[in-house]
């Protein structure tokens, strides 16, 4: 489904990704962990198509097709979703208008008819129920004045609405208290199926108690230096990242 081949990327002539190799199949959940500055957010931005990075070499294949030349919107149309670490506040666009526009743009790209207001609203109510969100949310300005937890919940809500094939959750757990974490995790788990995949980027093992990954990778200096199963996350939680750093030196 997603294959990253020897990916090197830089920003402002500084190399951040230093030969990433990763293969993800449908139905799998992969966690990517690593200390600050290891390149986790760069990786998710590069996969989503942010144009602030230079791809030096390597490739990103989505269903076997290279997406490096694709715009962010085209990647979204193929079924890619990035849950932002810092969702942007946009006054003047309501949550419902934003999601309706996004969903219908994706449907349009797939050659489907736009979804009408009433089925759209029904679907929104349903998904909001799972995430225990108040329906007043819909008429608020996108992320404006939202608490950290509300922003992250709003990201997961969008994911639930857009039903992507592959979702990258970039530090979705940061800024969440334990109750919000559980609700968000339940939301993600309810969407897990053998028709989609998740990449969960996190510093901590905590989220992985709720969303149990099939694979755990450690990113360090722009490279995946270790891969394992959920036990690796538990070990990292216990021992920190120092032993990984030492191993690399």
């Amino acid at each position: 489904m997603l294959e990253i081949v020897n990916l090197h990327a830089s920003i402002d002539n500084k190399v951040i990704l230093n030969g990433i190799n990763l293969k993800i199949n449908l139905g799998e959940v992969h966690a990517i962990m690593g200390p600050n500055g290891s390149g986790k957010s760069t990786l998710s931005n590069v996969i989503a198509g942010h144009d602030g990075y230079d791809i030096i070499s390597g490739d990103i294949l989505f269903d076997g097709e290279s997406v490096l030349d694709f715009s962010p919107e085209k990647r979204a149309h193929l079924g890619l979703f990035l849950s932002f670490q810092y969702p942007v506040e946009i006054p003047g666009i309501t949550v419902s208008n934003f999601i309706r526009t996004a969903l219908n743009e994706i449907r349009k790209a797939k050659g489907e008819e736009p979804l009408g207001a009433s089925p759209m609203l029904k679907m929104m109510r349903e998904k909001m129920g799972v995430l225990e969100m108040d329906k007043g949310f819909l008429s608020r300005s996108l992320n404006e004045g939202f608490s950290g937890g509300e922003k992250k919940r709003n990201e997961i809500f969008q994911m639930a609405m857009l039903e992507p094939k592959m979702a990258i959750l970039d530090e979705t757990d940061s800024g969440l208290d334990i109750d919000a974490l559980r609700i968000v995790a339940n939301g993600v788990n309810s969407l897990r199926s053998n028709r989609n995949t998740f990449i969960i980027i996190t510093h901590y093992q905590r989220l992985l108690d709720y969303i149990v990954p099939d694979f755990v990778h450690v990113l360090f200096n722009g490279k995946i230096v270790k891969s394992g199963d959920k036990e690796l996350a538990i070990e990292l939680e216990k021992r920190g990242y120092d032993w990984i750093k030492k191993e690399q030196e």
Partner: peptide, 11 residues
């Protein structure tokens, strides 16, 4: 903001 919207599929 522009990237955020585009990443959601909005051209």
């Amino acid at each position: 903001a522009l990237f955020y919207l585009r990443a959601r599929g909005i051209r």
